[in-house]
């Protein structure tokens, strides 16, 4: 098991943004965290990758606690933020080189990994350009390459297809599948239900900080007698609203 969340909660002031989250993501699996804006997806991810301290509970990456063994946990994961996180005035190779150094790769290892990633993500035509001049799709490819520079077993992707056109989305989705086939553990967040249905092996539906449904897309649809995840989501939301924002009974 490479990503584990145990009773993970986060409070800001008096407000609970993530509540007692239990989660397990295995190698060779794409797990989609889905939910509306403000459901707590990004906060959950930030706790899982050690950017935020949980108010209670804990998160483990390859067995390393993200708070007490933060460096070990971080060394095992690659992260792509919703904002792609590229330095506008660096070229893709400079960017990859910088992160290779931050992850402690030697110069030779760094060069080797960069060459491999340039080939894998077809970055050769972009090498002379600065990241600020790349298109959104190109930026996302560079971002994914950057997250893989240290060849991590775990990938955490926050809204990896947000703002991409159909073609670019498909390229990114194909890449994610390929990475899954390399036996990496992948956790991604999205609010595109159709994409989650097509891409994810399992999904967790987050609503107001609580995991209200979990399983394979097909199993969830069967359980709720719905033709799509979107329908499931709308049904669950109605149920939650009727119960006054508490978790719908019996949905886990």
């Amino acid at each position: 098991m490479t990503i584990v969340a145990e009773q993970l909660s986060k409070r800001f002031g008096g407000r609970e943004v993530v509540s007692n989250l239990e989660l397990v993501v295995r190698p060779g699996e794409i797990y989609g965290l889905i939910g509306p804006n403000g459901a707590g997806k990004t906060t959950t991810m930030r706790m899982l990758i050690g950017l935020m301290r949980p108010s209670s509970g804990r998160a483990l990456i390859c067995g390393a606690d993200t708070v007490t063994q933060a460096s070990r946990a971080k060394a095992q994961l690659g992260f792509v933020s919703a904002a792609t996180g590229l330095y506008e005035r660096l070229t893709p190779v400079q960017l990859l080189g910088y992160y290779a150094e931050l992850y402690g790769l030697s110069a030779a290892q760094g060069r080797q990994r960069c060459a491999a990633l340039v080939a894998e993500f077809a970055l050769a035509p972009l090498l002379q350009q600065r990241c600020g001049r790349l298109s959104t799709g190109e930026r996302q490819r560079v971002s994914l390459a950057r997250a893989l520079v240290h060849d991590p077993p775990v990938l955490v992707l926050d809204e990896p297809t947000a703002g991409l056109d159909v073609l670019a989305s498909r390229t990114v989705a194909d890449t994610i599948r390929r990475l899954r086939d390399q036996q990496r553990t992948i956790l991604l967040s999205t609010h595109y239900m159709t994409e989650a249905e097509l891409l994810c092996d399992r999904i967790g539906l987050l609503y107001r900080g609580r995991l209200v449904a979990e399983g394979s897309p097909a199993a969830i649809k069967t359980r709720y007698d719905a033709s799509s995840l979107e329908q499931v989501f709308l049904r669950l939301q109605d149920q939650a609203l009727a119960l006054g924002a508490a978790a719908p009974a019996g949905v886990r």
Partner: peptide, 14 residues
């Protein structure tokens, strides 16, 4: 603002 801080802090660098 550019969102690069998150990725930077996700590395093991102190």
């Amino acid at each position: 603002e550019r969102g690069t801080l998150e990725t930077l802090l996700s590395t093991p660098a102190p």
